[in-house]
């Protein structure tokens, strides 16, 4: 298989980026997208050119490291699939492929296709937890949880923190990411004591980190490799409104 790749190159965060064209002819349909880039990198290295930097680690769709916007879609064209699990058989011979970093003000480029997503961690640090110290808990079964609620919490908790929602959103909103964590904890009895505080803190941090505003396009849901539903955003809006109206400072 042959492909015409246009790969975003950017030496440093502040330097100007550009597209570099690579015509590749070695692509086998069994390769994952990242393996296709691995081979390109080996070839670049062999000819003493600098390989393309991109984030990746587990390569089984769970760590959330890999990114890349492929032909305008974060994680590429296939639904519910991370870039590392996207395989080349989804592309046509001769196809032109644009590879860009996840773009957002809150995700500054570090190099080439590598971006800094620590703003997502900062949001979690401001409230995405249940305040319980080690060894304080009661027996795990002391508090029964409605199975449906627990399953819904698990749906939300399956977020891998890749940031595709932000990348896909024309406004770079992080609502899907934040709402997934807010809902995961808000749905469980353990998360109730801090429910109001959590949603206020996380949303305020989200705003402060430079993410945009949700306009209900639902691109995030389409891009999410874990298919997290925008219903969690509605749930967060509800929680946020309630918390804002009833907070006592």
């Amino acid at each position: 298989m042959k492909l015409k790749l246009h790969v975003w190159r950017q030496k440093y965060g502040k330097s100007k980026g550009y597209f570099e064209q690579h015509d590749v002819d070695y692509v086998s349909e069994d390769m994952s997208f990242l393996e296709m880039l691995d081979v390109l990198n080996e070839k670049l290295l062999k000819s003493a050119k600098e390989p393309i930097a991109f984030d990746h680690d587990c390569r089984e769709g769970i760590c959330g490291c890999c990114s890349l916007t492929i032909n305008g879609n974060p994680h590429g064209p296939e639904k519910a699939t991370t870039t590392c699990q996207l395989h080349m058989r989804k592309f046509k011979d001769g196809e032109t492929v644009y590879i860009e970093p996840f773009r957002a003000k809150a995700f500054p480029v570090i190099k080439d296709l590598v971006v800094d997503r620590t703003s997502l961690d900062t949001i979690i640090q401001s409230g995405g937890f249940i305040s319980v110290n080690t060894n304080q808990p009661q027996d795990a079964n002391a508090l029964p949880v409605d199975k449906k609620q627990a399953d819904l919490a698990m749906d939300a908790a399956s977020c891998i923190g890749c940031g595709a929602c932000v990348a896909s959103c024309p406004n770079s909103a992080a609502m899907l990411f934040v709402s997934a964590k807010v809902s995961h904890m808000g749905l469980l009895p353990q998360g109730q004591p801090e429910r109001k505080k959590r949603v206020l803190a996380m949303v305020n941090t989200m705003d402060a980190e430079g993410f945009g505003t949700c306009r209900n396009f639902y691109e995030c849901e389409a891009a999410c490799p874990k298919e997290i539903s925008v219903r969690f955003i509605a749930r967060m809006n509800r929680d946020f409104l309630k918390a804002s109206l009833s907070k006592e400072d």
Partner: peptide
């Protein structure tokens, strides 16, 4: 510890 942190372990219908 994990349950207290909000780890959504699988549950039975009884909760």
């Amino acid at each position: 510890q994990c349950v207290a942190q909000g780890v959504p372990f699988a549950r039975e219908y009884g909760g």
